[in-house]
Write a protein that binds this DNA or RNA. Sequence first.
DNA 1: TCAAGGTAGTTGTCTAGTCATTTCGCAGGA
DNA 2: TCCTGCGAAATGACTAGACAACTACCTTGA
Lengths: 200, 200
Amino acid sequence: MGARSPEARYQEIERWLRRRVLDATPGDPLPSESELAAQFRVSRMTARQAVQNLAAEGLVQRRRGAGTFVAPRPIHRHEGSLMSFTEDMRRRGMKASSRLLEAGLRPATTADLEALRLPDGARVVAISRLRLADDVPLAIEHAALPAECAGVLADDLETGSLHESLVARGYVPALSRAWIRARIASATAARLLEIPARSA
Amino acid sequence: MGARSPEARYQEIERWLRRRVLDATPGDPLPSESELAAQFRVSRMTARQAVQNLAAEGLVQRRRGAGTFVAPRPIHRHEGSLMSFTEDMRRRGMKASSRLLEAGLRPATTADLEALRLPDGARVVAISRLRLADDVPLAIEHAALPAECAGVLADDLETGSLHESLVARGYVPALSRAWIRARIASATAARLLEIPARSA
DNA sequence: TCAAGGTAGTTGTCTAGTCATTTCGCAGGA
DNA sequence: TCCTGCGAAATGACTAGACAACTACCTTGA
């Protein structure tokens, strides 16, 4: 069977495991591939793919002959650390994605000029992306970068990372040189509200 | 067949592909899974594993229906598709930090209203932070959230994560998804998803 | 000339197994 | 008590298929 549904079976298992990992403590055993296969009514190879993906991420540890276990110190490193939307969602067992809304050049606003220390009349690369968690729009990101960074437009911002694009193109100084200033305006939208608590 | 030899078949194919990638230029096509399977006399699933491993490393790019190609930047390999600013900086041995510039309420712009699907006249929580790498300003982030999220202002955004603050306050619960879906479904004009189409 | 449609090729997902290798608990004996 | 060997269970590797979804290309028709 192909990918007839928006989510593949192994991805479903993956998400289920992710949630389990979150509620577990490092070292805890996870269901074996066979158990997962039986539980989700799939073949072992399909269940295996889910576990392997998590292992590749470092969330779980696989020990041949023994089993699969929650990886030691799953995370937790905030010292002034800002987790990315994607990372955050992923750890919550949700599928994070982003959709490119707009990308192009526009004149810089006065705020842009000041923040980026650009000369009057400069233009900026404007990029807008919609962030989704489990295909539900959760946030909108607007980014404005100096026109010198226009090269990032050629990259695949649908699925890739803006930071990565910048770094790959050498716009982030390896040494403290400030010739790169990116102004990234990020409008994070969180759909809150306390609707009736309904169990997931 | 099990791993009777020190090297598995898929690892052999992986090495062969690695060499090819090194001698190729970004964008070059690589043999298809079927070709690899025939060449190495293995099943397609085995050849596939080799290619997938390289794709996970970022060495090659896979495009459904098209083929597998040498990744744009063989030098710079990532494992995660989306790296956070902090993570990216840390890999470069730089210290990532952020400084709170501004936080308060302001009227939502029309863009905010549309993106977040807020009623006219709504206000948003605006948060501006400066991101630094080794104390060198690299980016400015402006976040706009619905006014209901105002509680996050009380948190220490200087050192903490915005996402974490939101989550801690229950603003990004899985529970809200149903509500969001309903809201989207009712908005028939929510066709902004098709608008963007921009190719590399 | 240009657009629509078909088609071959490629990746994505999945099945239902097999065999190899490793780990670990447990029974049984010294 | 110790420890040795056996076997169950788990992961690792692999097969030989299948269908689905997508892309690039080419043909056909207006």
